[in-house]
Design a protein around this nucleic acid. Structure first.
Lengths: 149, 149
DNA sequence: TTGGTAATGATAATCATTATCATTAAATAT
DNA sequence: ATATTTAATGATAATGATTATCATTACCAA
């Protein structure tokens, strides 16, 4: 990571340091559309950075989630999965998960309508239960093309 | 469980046996509105049935989920939580989860609209990605009244 | 350049869940 | 009612994901 990176200031403004593992993990996740587990991130990056440990991956992912740079999902398969939070408008999507093979598809169908309903519901819930709502999650489960046969 | 229970035939029709642990777990979950973890179910029932083991609780919960009598949720707190699937029409709800204390609230606001949108989205997704959709999940995350102060 | 301190990596611990297997108990035939 | 068959149970131990501890390393501000 020789060149100052676009996330460096974000990290430092947060009171954290800009390190090789953090740069590597952010880089990797920002360039993939996959929803990776900690182990998968570790496996992918350990080849390039043999010093990198799985524990650091866990800590870094946790930090990045707390900073709002990543989403963290539990799809009920045991491990958590992480996804880079893109800042472009049209990247918003939800998930379709195969309960057999664990395949995850992003979909954008009706997301505008979804978002409208979500906004409305959020407001109602925030008032009614005096909750401060920060996030939502919508997902569908089923069997993918290959698994349903 | 001396008296034939309303779930007994369901279990037996499924090729499973009607046992004391199964009756106890179904009874307990059907009478609570809580979203209990396996450990919580075990703790509650072990007082009444000292012979009951945690492993049996896990196995029974898994069976009941496979039979469609329970919902299983992963709220990202490490453990899975189980909820009795009520057969009354107006019981459909989604969840509002406090990310700090783990409190779970059921809400029914706009569920009709949600269901309509879900139905539409399901159809679109099923066609587009040739998925056989069996379930969905909508949830909101935030801070509850107590935790946000 | 250096010193304070956060970040890292290794080892071991924890927590939820699952596998194994001998024992027990439903359901069914006797 | 009893014996028989076989699924269900419970104990022990294993697994797999994640977290705690702590000595070492490396940012980065002075």
């Amino acid at each position: 990571m020789p060149r100052p990176h676009k996330w460096q200031h974000r990290l430092q403004g947060h009171g954290s340091r800009w390190t090789v593992p953090r740069g590597a993990i952010l880089n990797h996740l920002s360039r993939t559309s996959k929803h990776m587990s900690a182990k998968e991130v570790y496996t992918a990056l350990h080849k390039i950075y043999p010093a990198l440990g799985l524990i650091t991956v866990y800590r870094t992912l946790d930090l990045l989630v707390r900073m709002g740079l990543l989403y963290k999902f539990s799809f009920g398969t045991g491990e958590s999965r992480y996804e880079f939070k893109s800042d472009t408008e049209d990247s918003h999507h939800h998930h379709l998960i195969c309960t057999k093979c664990g395949k995850i598809l992003d979909y954008t169908d009706y997301v505008d309508e979804e978002l409208e309903l979500i906004k409305k519901t959020e407001e109602a819930l925030a008032t009614k239960h005096s909750f401060c709502i920060t996030d939502h999650n919508i997902e569908f489960y089923g069997l993918c093309d290959k698994c349903k046969s």
